[in-house]
Simulated assay, not measured.
Amino acid sequence: MTDAIQFYDYHTWANKRIFNHIENLPEETAYQEVKSVFPSISDVLLHMCKADYIWLNVLSGVAYQKIIDGVSKFEPAHGDMAAIKQHASELESQYHDFFSRQPDLEQTISMQHPKLGTLESTYAETILHVVNHGTYHRGNVTAMLRQLGHTGAPTDYVYYLYEKKESKG
């Protein structure tokens, strides 16, 4: 497994920990308004799904406007944690399908953005961006949970490594 795929697996592991933690809290917790970067925890998690969708399509070479048009498929999930979790699960499968078709994640790709222009990057660097973006927003979720009087779920990479080691052992 390449480092990029392992980090992506960490990303989905951490997201699942967040979803499972929230499922064990009072249902309204995910939807309560919080003065933060996003109005609610469910809004953060939906944003993360949209971003993961966008970047999967960028990696797949889909045209910018088609990607933007496709993001609207996530709108019915607004305010529905079960639907958001389902989207996250489907995206995980789609990413792994993408990985299975890529023999070289260090391959350079060209990304086109109407305002930012062209960027040359690798599949691996872009995957690491997806992971980093998720880490940032899981931090938002933890801060929001604390504002609402709840603890967060530990999602640091080292916890993933320990859990992975234990499952092999």
Score class of each variant (00 low, 15 high):
Thr108Ile: 01
Pro76Gln: 08
Tyr64Thr: 07
Leu56Asn: 09
Met144His: 09
Gln65Asn: 15
Tyr159Ser: 12
Tyr95Asp: 01
Asn57His: 14
Ser100Gln: 12
Met111Ile: 15
Lys115Leu: 10
Tyr160Ala: 06
Lys115Trp: 09
Thr118Arg: 11
Lys85Ala: 10
Thr155Pro: 02
Ala124His: 02
Leu161Ala: 14
Leu59Glu: 03
Arg101Val: 12
Thr118Ser: 10
Val62Leu: 03
Met111Arg: 05
Ser110Leu: 06
Thr155Tyr: 03
Arg138Pro: 11
Val62Arg: 11
Ser72Trp: 04
Gln94Arg: 15
Ser121Trp: 05
Tyr136Asp: 11
Ser121Leu: 11
Ile67Ser: 06
Thr151Asn: 14
Gln94Thr: 08
Asp80Trp: 07
Asp104His: 02
Asn132Asp: 04
Ile84Ser: 05
Thr126Gln: 11
Tyr157Met: 10
Gly70Ile: 02
Arg146Tyr: 10
Gln102Cys: 01
Gly149Phe: 09
Leu145Cys: 09
Pro103Lys: 15
Leu56Ile: 12
Asp97Met: 12
Val131Asp: 00
Arg138Leu: 10
Gly61Val: 04
Leu145Thr: 13
Leu148Ala: 09
Gln147Arg: 13
Ala82Asn: 13
Phe99Met: 07
Gln147Asn: 12
Pro154Leu: 09
Arg101Ser: 15
Gln112Ile: 08
Gln65Ser: 11
His137Pro: 10
Glu120Asn: 12
Val71Ala: 05
Ala77Pro: 07
Leu105Thr: 04
Met111Asn: 11
His87Tyr: 14
Glu106Cys: 00
His150Trp: 14
Ser100Asp: 15
Lys73Tyr: 03
Phe74Glu: 04
Ile67Gly: 02
His129Asn: 08
Tyr157Lys: 10
Leu91Lys: 10
Gln102Arg: 03
Ala82Leu: 06
